[in-house]
Design a protein around this nucleic acid. Sequence first.
DNA 1: ATATAAAAAGGAATCGTTTCCAACCCCACA
DNA 2: TGTGGGGTTGGAAACGATTCCTTTTTATAT
Lengths: 333, 333
Amino acid sequence: MRPPNIKDVADRAQVGIGTVSRVLNNSSQVRAETRERVLKAIEELGFIPNPAARQLSGGKTSVIGVITPFFTQPSYVERLAGIQSSLYESDYDLVLYSINSRAHFHTRLQNLLTQRRTDGLILLTPPRIDTRTLPELENMPIVVLDSPHMPQYPTLRIDDHLGGVLATEYLLSKGYDKIGFIGDRLDDPDFGSGATQHRFEGMQVTLTKAQAPKNHQWYRFGGLGHDIARVHAYELLNMTDRPRAIFTDSDIKAFDVINVAKDMGLRVPEDIAIIGFDDIDASRYMMLTTVRQPLMDSGTQTIEMLLDWLVNKNPPEKMMYFLPLEVIPRGTA
Amino acid sequence: MRPPNIKDVADRAQVGIGTVSRVLNNSSQVRAETRERVLKAIEELGFIPNPAARQLSGGKTSVIGVITPFFTQPSYVERLAGIQSSLYESDYDLVLYSINSRAHFHTRLQNLLTQRRTDGLILLTPPRIDTRTLPELENMPIVVLDSPHMPQYPTLRIDDHLGGVLATEYLLSKGYDKIGFIGDRLDDPDFGSGATQHRFEGMQVTLTKAQAPKNHQWYRFGGLGHDIARVHAYELLNMTDRPRAIFTDSDIKAFDVINVAKDMGLRVPEDIAIIGFDDIDASRYMMLTTVRQPLMDSGTQTIEMLLDWLVNKNPPEKMMYFLPLEVIPRGTA
DNA sequence: ATATAAAAAGGAATCGTTTCCAACCCCACA
DNA sequence: TGTGGGGTTGGAAACGATTCCTTTTTATAT
C-alpha cells in the first residue's frame, strides 16, 4: 500500500496541496482553523513528507554531513559521539563520509558542495587542501573541528602550542626536568595538522624559559608500524642518560609508554613520569596524567553552532574558537 | 551556475535522455558507440546524477542506515568502525540513526520502513519490540548485529552462554575457584538483551559441573549511577569471604574492578584475578584478560552481508550467525 | 450596502531522474 | 524489392514535494 502523499492529505482536509505545504512549512499564511484541519488529516493518515521530493523541489535535504578521516582512534570517536548526541533531538539526519587521503577529501568536499546533498557540513580534522578549486563555498554552512587549515570557515580547535606549554610546566613543577617527547611524524602529507609540531614547540619554549635540559636524543617522531610508539619508548627508556619524564602527543602513545615501562620493570612515576594528551575515556582507567581537551564537548559545540546556523539562520563568525585545555593530574606524573 | 543535468548530457551527446539514463544504469540496450559518446559528454560536463531525483523517481536511495543505541560505549563504536571501513569503497552513504529507548526504536524503524529513505538497514543491538506492527518487513534488506530479538532477520551475534562458560573454565583452570560476577541489571526494559543473564548462566552451569563453590553474595547486577561497578567491586573486595576472581560482563566494568583493587592495595592477579568481556581496544593497554568477541570484524561482516544482498541481489539466509569467542590471556587472570 | 484592501487558498509549473511504450533503424531472408 | 523482427532510441509520464501566480474569501472602512 502506497504511503500517503500530500495530495491525499489535501483531499482529506478539503484543501489544496499548496495549503498543506504551507502548514508543513509553518507559513503564517494559513488560518488557524484550516491549519487544524490539515494537521488532523496528517495525523490520521500518518503522513510523513517524502524527503526526496522535498529535496528535489525545495533544495532542503535535512541532512548534515560529517567528513571524517577513517576513524578508529578514540579521539575521533568521542568527538563524533558529541556531535551525534546533540543532533539527536533535531530533525536532521547525520551522514558519515569517511576519507583516507587528502586527495580523497578534496574530491569528496567538491562533490558535496556541488551536489548539495547536505544542508550543512562538519569537517572533522580536515587536511590542508587547495581551496581555490572549490566551488561556491559561501552557500554551504560549514563548521570545522580540530584543524587550523580551513580558516575561511568558523573553526573550533585547541591551542596546541599552549598544550605543550601546560604539559611541560606541569612536569617541571613536579620536579621532572629531563623531559622526552614521543609524537607523530611532523610532515605527514595527508593528515599532518601541525598539532604535534606545535605541542613540541610549546614544550621547547617552556624548557628554554626554565633553562631546563634538552637533548635531541630524547625526541622521537613518527615512523612506520602500529607499535612504533612502543619502539620509541623502549629506546628512550634504555638510554644511559634517559629522560626523567615523557610527554606524548596522544594518550594512546602514553599507554604504550606505560606498558613498556612496566615490562622493563620501571615504576611509574617513580622511575619514569608520563603525561599524555587528549584525555580519552580510557585514560581515566589507565590513571594517566594528561592534558585534557574537551573531545565530547567540542563535538557538541560544533553541531550546536551548525544547527543555530541552519535553523535560526544565525551564522557564526568565521574565526577560530579555541577550546580550553587543562592538565588532569592522575597517577603517572 | 546550475550543475549539469541529464538533459544537458543528452543534448551534448546528441541522444535522448532515456539513452543517457540507460548508460547511467548500465543497461545493455545501448550500442557501444553511443555509450561512448554519452560517457564522453558526462565526463566533459562533470555530470553527477542528482540523488534526490533518482530516489524520487526510481526509489533507490544509495543510503544504508544504521540504527544504534546512543553510543558512547567503545563496543558500539568498534562495531561501527567495522561497518564504516567496509562501506568505504562502495557507492553507499551511511546514515546514523541513534535511539534511546525501545519505543523510540520502534517508531524509528517504522518510519524508515514506510518512508524508504534507505536501501538497507543495519540494526545494532536492537531491543525486543513487537514486530507485528511493523509494515512490509519483507521489502527492506535488514541485517541485525548483536541481538537475539529479531530472529526474522539474518543476525550476527555471539553465544553469550558459551562466553560465560569460557570465562569460567579459564578461571577454574588457573586455579581460581571462588568466582564473583559483576554485570548489568538483568531486566532492563529498554536495552536488556539477555546477554548478561546468559553469560551469568554459562558461569553457573560451569561452576556446578566443576563442583566449584557458589555464593550469591558474590554476584552483583546493575543498579544506578555511572560508577556502580566501582561500588560493586568495593563491596565484593571488602567481604571477609571475598571471591578469588571476578568475572565482569564488560571490559569497562573490569577496568573499574582493577582500579578499585589497586586503590585498596590488592595485587592483580595475585590477590584478586579479573576477567572481562569484549576485548575493546583499551583492554590491551590495561593488560586485561578477557573473553574476546570480534567487534570490528562483526561490523565488517554485517556490512558485507548487506552489500552482497543489495549489490548482487544475494540475500543471506535468515538465521543466526554465531561469531567466534576466545579467551585472551593477559595480565589480570 | 458597497468598495477596497488584505488575508487565505488553489493548483499549475518545476525540480531531475527512471520507466515504459512507441517509433525507428537495419539486416536477414524470401 | 518487400517484410519481419530484433536491437536501439526518443521522450512523455510519473515520482511528491515547493513556489509562485491567480483567484477567492474575509475583514475593514465608508
